[in-house]
Protein backbone atom coordinates (compact mmCIF):
# COMPACT_ATOMS: atom_id res chain seq x y z
CA UNK A 1 0.00 0.00 0.00
CA UNK A 2 2.81 2.33 0.87
CA UNK A 3 4.42 1.77 -2.47
CA UNK A 4 1.14 2.60 -4.10
CA UNK A 5 0.82 5.90 -2.30
CA UNK A 6 4.41 6.86 -3.07
CA UNK A 7 3.91 6.24 -6.74
CA UNK A 8 0.68 8.27 -6.68
CA UNK A 9 2.40 11.17 -5.02
CA UNK A 10 5.26 11.00 -7.48
CA UNK A 11 2.85 10.78 -10.38
CA UNK A 12 1.13 13.97 -9.31
CA UNK A 13 4.37 15.64 -8.53
CA UNK A 14 5.93 15.18 -11.90
CA UNK A 15 2.82 16.19 -13.80
CA UNK A 16 3.71 18.95 -16.13
CA UNK A 17 7.43 18.61 -15.51
CA UNK A 18 9.04 17.98 -18.84
CA UNK A 19 12.54 18.11 -20.20
CA UNK A 20 13.14 19.37 -23.70
CA UNK A 21 15.76 17.50 -25.65
CA UNK A 22 15.78 17.40 -29.47
CA UNK A 23 12.01 17.65 -29.51
CA UNK A 24 11.84 14.73 -27.14
CA UNK A 25 10.26 15.04 -23.75
CA UNK A 26 11.19 12.86 -20.79
CA UNK A 27 8.88 12.60 -17.83
CA UNK A 28 9.34 10.65 -14.63
CA UNK A 29 6.03 8.85 -14.88
CA UNK A 30 6.26 6.53 -11.94
CA UNK A 31 8.55 5.40 -9.13
CA UNK A 32 8.21 2.18 -7.18
CA UNK A 33 10.42 0.84 -4.44
CA UNK A 34 11.17 -2.56 -3.07
CA UNK A 35 13.74 -4.25 -0.83
CA UNK A 36 15.13 -7.74 -0.51
CA UNK A 37 16.43 -9.49 2.55
CA UNK A 38 19.55 -11.52 1.73
CA UNK A 39 19.53 -14.85 3.54
CA UNK A 40 19.98 -18.55 2.86
CA UNK A 41 17.26 -19.56 0.39
CA UNK A 42 17.00 -22.25 -2.27
CA UNK A 43 16.36 -19.62 -4.96
CA UNK A 44 19.36 -17.58 -3.88
CA UNK A 45 22.50 -19.71 -4.25
CA UNK A 46 25.92 -18.20 -3.68
CA UNK A 47 27.48 -16.76 -6.83
CA UNK A 48 30.44 -18.92 -7.84
CA UNK A 49 32.59 -16.12 -9.28
CA UNK A 50 32.29 -14.20 -6.00
CA UNK A 51 33.02 -17.28 -3.90
CA UNK A 52 36.13 -17.92 -5.99
CA UNK A 53 37.42 -14.37 -5.45
CA UNK A 54 36.83 -14.68 -1.69
CA UNK A 55 38.42 -18.16 -1.37
CA UNK A 56 42.15 -17.28 -1.17
CA UNK A 57 41.47 -14.41 1.28
CA UNK A 58 39.24 -16.64 3.37
CA UNK A 59 41.87 -19.40 3.50
CA UNK A 60 44.53 -16.98 4.79
CA UNK A 61 42.15 -15.53 7.31
CA UNK A 62 40.78 -18.83 8.58
CA UNK A 63 44.32 -19.91 9.49
CA UNK A 64 44.74 -16.87 11.72
CA UNK A 65 41.19 -16.53 12.97
CA UNK A 66 40.29 -20.07 13.94
CA UNK A 67 43.11 -20.30 16.48
CA UNK A 68 41.77 -21.06 19.97
CA UNK A 69 43.16 -18.77 22.64
CA UNK A 70 40.96 -19.53 25.63
CA UNK A 71 37.79 -21.04 26.94
CA UNK A 72 34.87 -18.98 28.11
CA UNK A 73 33.35 -20.46 31.24
CA UNK A 74 29.98 -18.72 31.02
CA UNK A 75 27.95 -16.78 28.45
CA UNK A 76 28.65 -13.02 28.54
CA UNK A 77 26.23 -10.29 27.49
CA UNK A 78 26.82 -6.77 26.24
CA UNK A 79 24.47 -4.59 28.28
CA UNK A 80 23.80 -1.17 29.72
CA UNK A 81 24.43 0.17 32.27
CA UNK A 82 26.68 -2.84 32.88
CA UNK A 83 27.22 -6.25 31.27
CA UNK A 84 29.61 -9.17 31.69
CA UNK A 85 31.21 -8.63 28.27
CA UNK A 86 31.96 -4.97 28.96
CA UNK A 87 33.24 -5.72 32.47
CA UNK A 88 35.55 -8.39 31.09
CA UNK A 89 36.96 -6.16 28.33
CA UNK A 90 37.38 -3.16 30.67
CA UNK A 91 39.21 -5.29 33.26
CA UNK A 92 41.59 -6.64 30.61
CA UNK A 93 42.13 -3.11 29.34
CA UNK A 94 42.99 -2.07 32.93
CA UNK A 95 45.34 -5.00 33.52
CA UNK A 96 47.18 -4.75 30.22
CA UNK A 97 47.48 -0.95 30.46
CA UNK A 98 48.81 -1.29 34.04
CA UNK A 99 51.64 -3.50 32.72
CA UNK A 100 52.60 -0.83 30.19
CA UNK A 101 52.25 2.24 32.41
CA UNK A 102 55.02 3.36 34.74
CA UNK A 103 52.74 4.99 37.31
CA UNK A 104 49.69 3.63 39.06
CA UNK A 105 46.62 3.38 36.88
CA UNK A 106 43.28 4.33 38.47
CA UNK A 107 40.78 2.76 36.09
CA UNK A 108 39.95 1.86 32.47
CA UNK A 109 36.96 2.74 30.32
CA UNK A 110 35.74 1.38 27.00
CA UNK A 111 32.93 2.93 24.95
CA UNK A 112 29.84 0.74 24.63
CA UNK A 113 29.74 1.25 20.83
CA UNK A 114 33.27 -0.14 20.50
CA UNK A 115 32.00 -3.62 21.40
CA UNK A 116 30.22 -5.03 18.38
CA UNK A 117 28.62 -8.32 19.41
CA UNK A 118 25.68 -8.76 21.80
CA UNK A 119 26.81 -12.09 23.28
CA UNK A 120 30.03 -14.04 23.75
CA UNK A 121 28.99 -17.68 24.12
CA UNK A 122 30.47 -20.16 26.57
CA UNK A 123 33.09 -22.47 25.06
CA UNK A 124 36.30 -22.04 23.09
CA UNK A 125 37.32 -18.45 22.30
CA UNK A 126 39.02 -17.98 18.93
CA UNK A 127 40.92 -14.99 17.57
CA UNK A 128 37.88 -14.46 15.30
CA UNK A 129 35.65 -14.02 18.36
CA UNK A 130 37.87 -11.22 19.61
CA UNK A 131 37.76 -9.55 16.18
CA UNK A 132 33.97 -9.80 16.30
CA UNK A 133 33.95 -8.26 19.78
CA UNK A 134 36.19 -5.42 18.64
CA UNK A 135 36.63 -4.99 14.89
CA UNK A 136 37.90 -1.42 15.19
CA UNK A 137 41.61 -0.79 15.28
CA UNK A 138 41.35 1.18 18.51
CA UNK A 139 44.66 1.99 20.12
CA UNK A 140 45.13 1.66 23.87
CA UNK A 141 46.03 5.07 25.31
CA UNK A 142 46.43 6.45 28.81
CA UNK A 143 45.42 9.94 29.89
CA UNK A 144 46.49 11.63 33.12
CA UNK A 145 43.81 14.22 33.73
CA UNK A 146 42.58 16.57 36.39
CA UNK A 147 39.39 15.80 38.29
CA UNK A 148 37.37 18.38 36.33
CA UNK A 149 38.02 16.46 33.13
CA UNK A 150 37.38 13.07 34.74
CA UNK A 151 34.07 14.41 36.09
CA UNK A 152 32.96 15.29 32.55
CA UNK A 153 33.90 11.79 31.39
CA UNK A 154 31.67 10.15 34.02
CA UNK A 155 28.86 12.62 33.30
CA UNK A 156 29.08 11.57 29.67
CA UNK A 157 29.12 7.86 30.65
CA UNK A 158 25.98 8.40 32.77
CA UNK A 159 24.25 10.33 29.99
CA UNK A 160 25.01 7.48 27.57
CA UNK A 161 23.32 5.03 29.97
CA UNK A 162 26.56 3.40 31.08
CA UNK A 163 29.80 2.31 29.40
CA UNK A 164 32.07 -0.61 30.27
CA UNK A 165 34.37 0.40 33.15
CA UNK A 166 36.97 -1.59 35.08
CA UNK A 167 36.29 -3.03 38.53
CA UNK A 168 37.80 0.05 40.20
CA UNK A 169 34.67 2.11 39.51
CA UNK A 170 31.39 2.52 41.40
CA UNK A 171 29.23 5.15 39.70
CA UNK A 172 25.65 6.13 40.40
CA UNK A 173 24.36 8.62 37.86
CA UNK A 174 21.25 9.82 36.03
CA UNK A 175 20.15 9.66 32.40
CA UNK A 176 20.55 13.43 32.30
CA UNK A 177 24.26 12.98 32.89
CA UNK A 178 24.39 13.92 36.57
CA UNK A 179 26.74 12.10 38.98
CA UNK A 180 24.99 11.08 42.21
CA UNK A 181 28.01 9.30 43.63
CA UNK A 182 31.39 8.18 42.33
CA UNK A 183 34.04 6.02 43.99
CA UNK A 184 37.36 5.20 42.38
CA UNK A 185 39.23 2.35 44.07
CA UNK A 186 36.86 2.63 47.03
CA UNK A 187 37.75 6.29 47.58
CA UNK A 188 35.27 9.11 46.96
CA UNK A 189 36.01 10.95 43.74
CA UNK A 190 38.01 14.13 44.37
CA UNK A 191 37.81 16.88 41.78
CA UNK A 192 41.18 18.29 42.86
CA UNK A 193 43.01 15.00 42.25
CA UNK A 194 44.72 13.84 39.06
CA UNK A 195 43.65 10.45 37.71
CA UNK A 196 45.35 8.12 35.24
CA UNK A 197 43.05 6.00 33.10
CA UNK A 198 43.21 3.75 30.05
CA UNK A 199 40.78 4.13 27.13
CA UNK A 200 40.46 3.70 23.35
CA UNK A 201 42.14 6.44 21.30
CA UNK A 202 38.81 7.02 19.55
CA UNK A 203 37.36 8.42 22.78
CA UNK A 204 40.62 10.12 23.78
CA UNK A 205 40.51 11.98 20.44
CA UNK A 206 37.11 13.38 21.31
CA UNK A 207 34.94 10.71 19.69
CA UNK A 208 31.39 10.01 20.88
CA UNK A 209 31.14 13.68 21.91
CA UNK A 210 33.97 13.42 24.44
CA UNK A 211 35.35 16.73 23.16
CA UNK A 212 36.64 17.58 26.64
CA UNK A 213 39.33 14.89 26.20
CA UNK A 214 40.57 16.25 22.89
CA UNK A 215 43.34 18.44 24.28
CA UNK A 216 44.60 16.00 26.93
CA UNK A 217 48.07 14.53 26.36
CA UNK A 218 47.95 10.85 25.43
CA UNK A 219 50.46 8.23 26.49
CA UNK A 220 50.71 5.72 23.64
CA UNK A 221 52.28 2.29 23.41
CA UNK A 222 51.47 1.41 19.82
CA UNK A 223 49.16 -1.37 21.07
CA UNK A 224 45.65 -2.01 19.73
CA UNK A 225 43.07 -2.89 22.40
CA UNK A 226 42.04 -5.95 20.40
CA UNK A 227 45.65 -7.17 20.32
CA UNK A 228 45.95 -6.50 24.06
CA UNK A 229 42.92 -8.76 24.65
CA UNK A 230 44.40 -11.50 22.44
CA UNK A 231 47.79 -11.23 24.19
CA UNK A 232 46.05 -11.31 27.55
CA UNK A 233 44.20 -14.52 26.67
CA UNK A 234 47.32 -16.16 25.24
CA UNK A 235 49.21 -15.50 28.49
CA UNK A 236 46.42 -16.64 30.82
CA UNK A 237 46.87 -20.01 32.52
CA UNK A 238 45.10 -22.37 32.10
CA UNK A 239 43.17 -20.21 29.63
CA UNK A 240 39.75 -20.42 31.20
CA UNK A 241 37.99 -17.09 31.28
CA UNK A 242 35.97 -16.59 34.44
CA UNK A 243 32.90 -14.41 34.38
CA UNK A 244 33.23 -10.77 35.40
CA UNK A 245 29.74 -10.58 36.90
CA UNK A 246 27.49 -7.55 37.07
CA UNK A 247 28.35 -6.09 40.45
CA UNK A 248 26.95 -2.58 40.35
CA UNK A 249 29.92 -0.83 38.75
CA UNK A 250 27.45 1.55 37.17
CA UNK A 251 23.89 2.30 38.19
CA UNK A 252 21.70 4.72 36.28
CA UNK A 253 18.77 6.07 38.26
CA UNK A 254 15.38 6.35 36.56
CA UNK A 255 13.37 9.46 37.37
Amino acid sequence: MTTFSISRIILLLFLGVSLFNCKTYLHVADINEDRYEIEPHQDLPEDEAITAIIAPYKAQLDDKMNREIGINAEKMYKARPEGELGNWVADILFEEASKLYEGELDFAVQNHGGLRIPILNAGPITVRDIYEVMPFDNELVIIEARGVIVKQLFERIAAKGGWPVSKNIRLVGTKEGKIESLYINSKPFDETETYAFALPDYIANGGDRCVFLENQDQIKFNVLIRDAIITHLENEEPGIVQLAPREGRIKILRD
Binding site: F14, L15, S18, T24, Y25, H27, N32, E33, Y36
Partner: peptide, 21 residues
Protein backbone atom coordinates in the same frame (compact mmCIF):
# COMPACT_ATOMS: atom_id res chain seq x y z
CA UNK B 1 21.58 -7.76 5.01
CA UNK B 2 19.33 -6.05 2.47
CA UNK B 3 19.42 -4.82 -1.10
CA UNK B 4 17.29 -1.79 -1.92
CA UNK B 5 15.50 -1.34 -5.24
CA UNK B 6 13.90 1.75 -6.77
CA UNK B 7 12.23 1.42 -10.18
CA UNK B 8 11.81 4.62 -12.13
CA UNK B 9 9.52 4.65 -15.17
CA UNK B 10 10.32 7.40 -17.64
CA UNK B 11 8.02 8.42 -20.48
CA UNK B 12 9.72 9.57 -23.67
CA UNK B 13 7.44 11.40 -26.04
CA UNK B 14 7.20 14.11 -28.66
CA UNK B 15 4.83 16.20 -26.61
CA UNK B 16 5.48 18.39 -23.63
CA UNK B 17 2.46 16.85 -22.00
CA UNK B 18 3.05 13.64 -20.10
CA UNK B 19 0.80 11.02 -21.60
CA UNK B 20 1.22 8.18 -19.14
CA UNK B 21 1.30 10.40 -16.06
Amino acid sequence: IMLGRIDVTIEKGKKAKCFSC
